[in-house]
């Protein structure tokens, strides 16, 4: 990540998403003003009308690829971007809309739309890295502004961002939260989910929902066995917990398929 002599340019792009991650960028608020002293916001439709031409030094990409046009557009953006960082679960793993990957897309469109023939969509929702080379993936649904600040600052200072790929449990323990799984029997995805949220849900007495996607070396099979055998979570619920914002992340996807095979055995 090199910084050009001029102020480097920033572009923010949207694909299939709820805009929540871009809103997080906007919520930097006063920090955004500090940022604009060091970076030139060249293209960010949600924040300003400027539509400066590329190339761009840093592109932040929100959302997943769901249409043939998306697949074409992301290639153009990649070609215009020196550094490309994806922001959020949609851009990283396909988002909640990747639930379609487990179903029949034609059946969906025929139920939802009056004129399904107007719909031009891909069968699967996929993350940006399935289509182009990505320099850094920032996880989360939505992203954490602390981590976003860190990534942008690291870019500006030409250093590696400090974003740990280890589990939510580390944040829980540093925070001093009593483990909700051990002490309350609440199913928690924290041990196989990447840190970043600051272990928010366990601090409010809930299990982790996996917003930041699989942690490094996630052993989803062992955790699901424990949920089933010890916590008494039925297979259908195990599948649903693995299939939320990061349903298409390989570690969650593959394990949810394995669990899905057990659904019929589980229900009497």
């Amino acid at each position: 990540m090199s910084v050009t002599a001029e102020r480097p340019t920033l572009a923010v792009w949207k694909f299939a998403s709820c805009d929540g991650c871009q809103l997080e960028v906007l919520s930097l608020a006063d920090r955004l003003l500090t940022l604009t002293e060091r970076i030139d916001v060249a293209f960010f439709l949600e924040a300003s009308g400027s539509r400066a031409e590329g190339p761009y030094d840093l592109s932040l990409v929100e959302g997943s690829v769901t249409t043939p046009d998306d697949a074409r557009r992301i290639r153009e953006i990649r070609a215009q971007s020196k550094t490309l960082v994806t922001i959020g679960a949609c851009a990283t793993s396909g988002g909640i809309q990747a639930l379609r990957n487990f179903a029949d897309i034609d059946a969906f469109t025929s139920i939802v739309y009056a004129r399904p023939d107007y719909i031009d969509t891909l069968a699967k929702s996929t993350g940006i890295a399935d289509h182009v080379t990505v320099d850094f993936e920032l996880r989360g649904c939505p992203i954490s502004i602390t981590q976003l600040t860190e990534v942008v600052t690291a870019f500006l200072d030409g250093r590696r961002p400090s974003v740990a790929p280890s589990s939510v449990c580390g944040e829980c323990k540093r925070r001093g939260t009593v483990c909700v799984m051990v002490a309350h029997g609440t199913p928690c995805l924290g041990p196989i989910t990447q840190a970043g949220c600051g272990a928010l849900c366990p601090a409010y007495d809930r299990g982790c929902y996996g917003c930041f996607g699989p942690a490094e070396t996630a052993n989803a099979a062992s955790l699901m066995d424990w949920w089933g055998d010890v916590l008494g979570v039925d297979a259908g619920s195990r599948v649903r917990m693995l299939r939320t914002f990061n349903a298409n992340a390989p570690e969650f996807r593959d394990e949810s398929r394995r669990q899905d095979e057990q659904v019929d055995h589980d229900t009497p």
Partner: peptide, 13 residues
């Protein structure tokens, strides 16, 4: 290793 989640709880506790 087939059971361990590598979550680090043991070391932090």
């Amino acid at each position: 290793a087939s059971r361990c989640l590598a979550c680090g709880n043991c070391t932090l506790a």
